[in-house]
Amino acid sequence: MIAYLARRLIAMILTLLILSMVVFVVIQLPPGDFVTSYIARLSSMGEVPDENVVEAIRAQYKLDDPLFVQYWAWLEGMFTGNFGFSFEMKRPVAEIFSQRIGISLTVEILAIVVMWGIAIPIGIYSAVYQYSVGDYVATIVGFLGIAVPNFLFALILMYVCYVWFGVTITGLNSPDFANERWSLAKLLDFASHVWAPVLVIATGGAATLIRVLRANLLDELKKPYVLTARAKGLKRHKVIMRYPVRVAMNPLISVVGWVLPTVISSSFVTAIVLNMPTLSPILLRALLSQDMYLAGALILFMGFLTMIGTLLSDILLAWIDPRIRMGMIGAR
């Protein structure tokens, strides 16, 4: 188990390093370096750039040094929590991070929980009652979940809530609560807002999960041991829940690895449509104004989160399935 963990950890660190290089290349892509775009941005706001500040930035990002040194300086900053400075919000990026990361994570984790909560019962139902009305409904809803892009679903939900029920579902808290401290009232208010993004993010991934679980369970249900257990007099739902479902669940845990990137991607788009105070709008604004250092830090951070999640799912899978722990079959 420990050897397995170590292998996974090393792989993750290597992946992160490669990602950081990719992100750094993306940062370097726009023409002109950081300082020229900084000066351009200042003068567009009608301010005159301060010579000292410009020099300080040049020194901080080591812009006069070779590219490799620049990369290293940047990476060092990432590790020590020095993510740079947001020009639009006029605050250090780290401060914005710490303020918003909690909400981002809460929404994403809730979405994953809801996703599994929706997918598992529906998947089991449509496999056990194959070709029933419920199965067809689940299949249709599943296909829609794949075909409707998240932002469109969010838009439609927003429209329906506004026109039919007169509710605006943007944001995560009512204006009265936005700057309050956390209390029970605020939590309830939060709950009355958070269902919309969670639902939007969850449906996209749930559709795929349902299909995977249904297919796996159908294979498993046909196996002779199910018939044997039934013949021995075990109750139908007991047989299904105790044996085939458990086997069919395994692949479901291993797909966390690619469900997570999807969840982070879709929560990103959803957060922007629904105007949620998460990290996503900041990334979007940074990208639109080509504030590449801030954007790069955010992308790297999202990648980091994804990898942590994938690692957790691998550990979970190894814990559940001894064959993976022993290195007999791959985790994916």
Partner: peptide, 21 residues
């Protein structure tokens, strides 16, 4: 494996934001 483990939309966005205006 590396490319599949990344959240695609943010990365896509980073690349397209890097396009000259």
């Amino acid at each position: 494996e590396f490319l599949r483990s990344l959240p695609t939309i943010p990365l896509w966005m980073g690349l397209s934001a890097a396009m000259p205006r």
